[in-house]
Design a protein around this nucleic acid. Structure first.
Lengths: 166, 166
DNA sequence: CGAGAATAGTTGTTTCGACAACTATTTGCT
DNA sequence: AGCAAATAGTTGTCGAAACAACTATTCTCG
């Protein structure tokens, strides 16, 4: 099988995207660890719970939203539970399942750390782009996500907000 | 300090970018681990060496190109050395420094694993976009990198290829 | 309705990355 | 020259993620 190498233009885009992929997660992690003692992943777990009805989600649903395996999520949630930010209780309808709910302390944690996180996202991404580029980025990432996540599991909670383009 | 929250359009872009940030590294890692027994980071270390003159770079230079801390790189290079893919030797001009060079086996490893890696990048990113979007993505990531990496360390090896736009 | 398959989650082990502490060489300053 | 500071890298420790193995419910279908 012969390989179709990247053209000059494609390589330019990929090199830069790969750099962003390497740099941005670290930047987000650093800010959250410093200001909120939270990893980026832990923040997203809390954020997803904060947007769910009754601040509650089943482990499987939470795993899909955060692109985590169940083992990984289980460990993370246990640590968050140890810190009093979430609580777990068996699902009444299905005794195999576990529900995870944000505690009041967990909600305050999200409330306190969201501004700093948003400011970081603004500083390093949003404010670097023109409104037109924001739109282009949405379409580009949308196209890529159709390959990476055809079912749209990760963006499920947000689909209702912007049901515009197909 | 009051927070400027994201607009609907900005949120749409950010949610999708965050999802890509979470999904793409795992996809690249899986393919490389499966087909070449290499992590994405290890692959990039070897790739950077393969593009350097004489297949040799100092640890500090390699760390800058891969956005790694020196401790992290030191561990990774030791493992690659154990596997015979690179070799280390003291820099003649500066006895503090260490040079890392790709071995013939390391070069073959890059040669063998590059097609699969490029195919994955094509499948999940490049081929999902129009030529126009490739250009847009280059400009967008370029703008973001000016915030994340003003010195342009990570893309240093590629700067010569595309010295077009400022 | 009962046994095998599928689902939901937890726990344990090994590996990798972040951070801190340390050694060795070179540079800068007076 | 000589000593402090900076540079270059390694090593050790600890926390987190991948992977495999395991338990406990629920579904399916003969």
């Amino acid at each position: 099988m012969d390989t179709t190498w990247l053209t000059k233009e494609e390589l330019a885009a990929w090199v830069r995207l790969a750099a962003v992929l390497e740099l941005l997660p670290g930047t987000l992690d650093s800010q959250l660890r410093r200001d909120a003692e939270l990893t980026n992943f832990e923040y997203y777990v809390l954020a997803m719970l904060s947007e769910a009805t009754d601040n509650t989600l089943r482990m499987t649903a939470l795993a899909a939203l955060t692109n985590a395996t169940l083992p990984r999520l289980s460990h993370v949630v246990r640590r968050l539970e140890d810190r009093g930010l979430v609580e777990r209780f068996p699902c009444p309808e299905d005794h195999r399942a576990t529900n995870t709910r944000l505690t009041p302390a967990g909600w305050r944690k999200v409330e306190q750390s969201a501004p700093g996180h948003v400011a970081t996202v603004r500083k390093h991404v949003i404010d670097a782009l023109t409104p037109e580029q924001i739109g282009q980025l949405t379409e580009i990432t949308d196209a890529v996500l159709q390959r990476l996540d055809p079912a749209g599991k990760m963006t499920a909670l947000y689909r209702r907000h912007d049901a515009v383009e197909s």
